[in-house]
Design a protein around this nucleic acid. Structure first.
Lengths: 335, 335
DNA sequence: GACGTCTCTGTTAACGCTAACAACAATTGG
DNA sequence: CCAATTGTTGTTAGCGTTAACAGAGACGTC
């Protein structure tokens, strides 16, 4: 074990140059004779040399690593985002270090950020969808490039976010367009910005149509809470259209409706949010709103990289529009 | 930007000691006077000092980072595993760097491993569920602590794996116990060891009961392929029990059966694998097999850490038994 | 021919930390 | 009382890389 690989000096010796020339070749400096460059490359290949990131990080002050702070990476949204971030980062030559936290409270977030900072990450992406994360972020050292995803729109921090409001408005409008008199909403937890945005969008669409929003049914993202809400919705004959804050809630609702003999979409129409891969195979196939996680990842990474390169902070803001995916869970109400 | 924080010497100066004493306090060396230790800690706190991981990694030859190579971290299984690994690693003071790859072929895996190596990770966990990953692993440098998860049982590499065979056997037996004459199987892709193990377990259980396994229906983990298989199963009156290689396949099957008017569990019983959180809210709630991802993560990390500490390689092997979760999708066949 | 100006390459000094050794006091044993 | 041991601290030398500067040719210009 611990048979350390060759270092830059070994490559230099083999190629008959100084270690600095090797460094220049590696970093793509212009002023290296083509012939020298080739000799160096050959030596690198022959020795199987791999640059030591730690040494580079030490001298440059930052590593080629981006830290991501996320909660609950088992959920579809965060997991997709994380995967997309990792892909995009890899293309830019960055590794991604994950610091998932159980709770998005001040202490947990700070701890995760601390861990990343002590590894001298080049920048940090915080997937911080809840209220309590916000404070933690403002107390962070100002000299670390930072981007938040789905965070608090009211804070002066660079933010990339799915346009929750537009998505929710589209979902609600889709139901209204189908002829429904009103639309009920099963929401996510109230301390998530995602939830708040979706509630706002739903409310806006109703108000714009001159309707009074019916009471909100609060859930917690899980199929389980969707089921509980569904049991209530099923009992109310007037309910003909439901918009749920995510697909898992929708799944729970679908099952409750099924148990009560309320048919979807014949009796009640349902629209979800997220477009999980299985949504097309729910009973019935779920109409839902698909956020573009790749676009979010790309936007946040780009924002982060520009901070890293330029050194400027800047509280940019970028929004990615989701698209409605129409399937069979929506139909006009029966007279 | 680039306002570098205080270094060890700054702490030392403030505490009135040498930087080496600070290092000793940080690393918990025994021979430091209690009073000195307190002074140093106070200085650390006052300056908000954070040790520089890069410098430490440079001098010790390895960082407090564990590299994870995984494919498709959007799927429930890999995502759960990753999250569990990260949690466990954090408890041990390690960060986790993810290198997700699109394809698990030789080139991609090697590239991901290379990236990790150049960051001098302390060890690598490869979630390598497919055939083609195997070769890549054997050509890796021997001096890097390495553990594979759900990998090839026939290769001489430390391996932690869910006991797929036992899980599949339990699922199949559960259906036989309910009185079914035979059990059909919708499998995962044939190059995944998970699939192979589950097929083996299914086959074993049938053979042990003196039955001839019916034809295998190959799927690809997705609800979509489950749906396609389900359309065929629904057409065959003799089919009364189906075991699917994961819950998403089961979801697709459920929907196909529903469309064809075949009721579950009245006409056909279904058992899945994974116990995704939504499985309890399928129509009907799905009986499934739950692998213990936390246990897998703990076992693999423990195995990795012991390699890191001892320096010995050793081709250990550890298996984690899954449990059957009975819900409503299984019933005795109708006469 | 002397002098600037390129292009290429080498030399030296950090970066912040740990390991190895050295140094000194306090304690013990004879 | 001297030597050996122990506990505590300081000094020095790297780890492998990049940045800053220096130097050697080649070339063109006055």
């Amino acid at each position: 074990m611990a048979v350390h690989g060759p270092a830059m000096t070994d490559v230099a010796r083999l190629a008959g140059v100084s270690h600095q020339t090797v460094s220049r070749v590696l970093n793509g400096h212009p002023n290296v004779r083509e012939q020298t460059r080739l000799r160096v490359r050959a030596a690198i290949a022959e020795l199987g040399y791999r640059p030591n990131g730690a040494a580079r990080a030490l001298v440059t002050g930052r590593s080629q690593v981006i830290g991501v702070v996320a909660q609950n990476t088992t959920l579809y949204g965060p997991a997709s985002l994380l995967a997309a971030l990792e892909q995009t980062a890899a293309e830019e030559g960055f590794a991604v270090s994950v610091g998932s936290v159980r709770n998005l409270d001040h202490r947990s977030i700070s701890a995760a950020v601390e861990r990343h900072l002590s590894h001298r990450v080049a920048g940090i992406v915080v997937i911080a969808p809840v209220e309590s994360a916000g404070e933690a972020l403002e107390r962070l050292p100002k000299d670390v490039p930072l981007v938040t995803v789905d965070g608090d729109p009211s804070r002066p921090v660079p933010l990339v976010t799915v346009d929750q409001v537009a998505g929710a408005r589209a979902a609600t409008q889709h139901l209204l367009d189908a002829g429904h008199r009103t639309v009920w909403h099963v929401s996510g937890p109230s301390d998530w910005f995602d939830s708040v945005g979706r509630i706002d969008g739903w409310r806006e669409a109703l108000l714009a149509a001159g309707l009074v929003p019916p009471p909100l049914m609060p859930g917690d993202w899980s199929a389980s809470s969707g089921y509980r809400c569904g049991q209530m919705l099923a009992r109310m004959p007037e309910v003909t259209a439901v918009f749920t804050a995510n697909d898992h809630l929708a799944l729970g609702v679908l099952r409750a409706l099924h148990e009560f003999g309320r048919r979807v979409p014949d009796d009640i129409s349902v629209v979800g949010f997220d477009d999980v891969p299985e949504a097309a195979y729910f009973i019935p196939p779920l109409t839902t709103v698909r956020p573009d996680f790749d676009a979010v990842a790309r936007a946040s990474l780009q924002m982060l990289l520009s901070q890293i390169e330029s050194g400027t902070g800047g509280a940019l803001r970028q929004t990615v529009a989701p698209t409605l995916v129409a399937r069979e869970s929506v139909a006009p109400p029966r007279r």
